[in-house]
């Protein structure tokens, strides 16, 4: 999967929002550590993919018409067998059709499960005056509430990346509180740099979120991603 073909596909469908599978696969191709996520259009294909990825897995609806997947009953987690996959596939499709009757369903995303870590967000948006800016912060659902984030204008230097990671008030959480192991800041910085390069290579990208990324004592992995491209 390359950027050009994904962009062409999205634009042909009148979309500016790349779907989860497209977003994650493009980021994985750019060297970012991402939970493996593949698109299935049949229950049988989903089962094959789950075996290939390794159980347990998550299934999620992929539809441009459904933005709140969980609310639509479009997400099933912790699926551990071929039987569970087959049942979940049917259920998700039925739920989605019930929630949004006219929804065009692209397929079902089959995603590996990652061990929970410290949740962070890395993103990019375009400032009208300064152009592309990167954002880092504590992630997950709390990002909108705490707004504990920092920004830097592209291009980034090593100094910029190190500082933006340490700028947030919650840096003590990354440093490890109450006996927790410190989060792998090197991996965070490395990920921000890779995303910055990815964004620099593709001026069509308007906005981007990786939220959450799980950070561990060693390593990092993006669990969800969203890429918005400019309209053609």
């Amino acid at each position: 999967m390359n950027f050009k073909s994904v962009l062409k596909q999205a634009r042909s469908e009148g979309r500016t929002l790349l779907n989860e599978v497209e977003s994650k696969q493009l980021l994985a191709a750019a060297g970012v550590s991402v939970v493996r996520t593949e698109l299935a259009t049949t229950a049988e294909q989903a089962t094959q993919l789950a075996n290939d990825i390794g159980y347990p897995v998550v299934l999620k609806i992929v539809s441009a018409d459904i933005s709140h997947k969980s609310d639509a009953g479009g997400v099933k987690v912790g699926l551990g067998s071929d039987e569970e996959i087959a049942a979940a596939f049917i259920e998700i499709v039925a739920n989605a059709k019930k929630a949004v009757p006219d929804a065009a369903i692209t397929g079902i995303a089959v995603q590996g499960m990652a061990e929970t870590g410290t949740e962070v967000i890395v993103g990019m948006t375009r400032d009208p005056q300064f152009g592309p800016v990167m954002m880092f912060g504590l992630g997950g659902v709390l990002v909108e509430v705490l707004k504990d984030v920092s920004f830097r204008v592209l291009p980034l230097t090593d100094r910029d990346v190190n500082q933006m990671v340490n700028d947030i008030k919650g840096r003590v959480i990354l440093d490890g509180v109450r006996g927790m192991q410190p989060a792998d800041k090197t991996a965070i910085c490395d990920t921000i740099m890779k995303i910055a390069r990815f964004v620099g290579d593709h001026p069509e990208i308007e906005e981007l979120d990786l939220n959450p990324l799980f950070v561990y004592a060693q390593g990092i992995i993006a669990v969800d991603a969203r890429i918005v491209v400019a309209a053609a």
């Binding site: 967000i121 400032d127 990002v143 906005e207």
Partner: peptide, 11 residues
């Protein structure tokens, strides 16, 4: 804005 990043990036 379609992203958290976009909605959090004030001037």
């Amino acid at each position: 804005a379609h992203s958290h990043t976009g909605s959090l990036a004030g001037s």
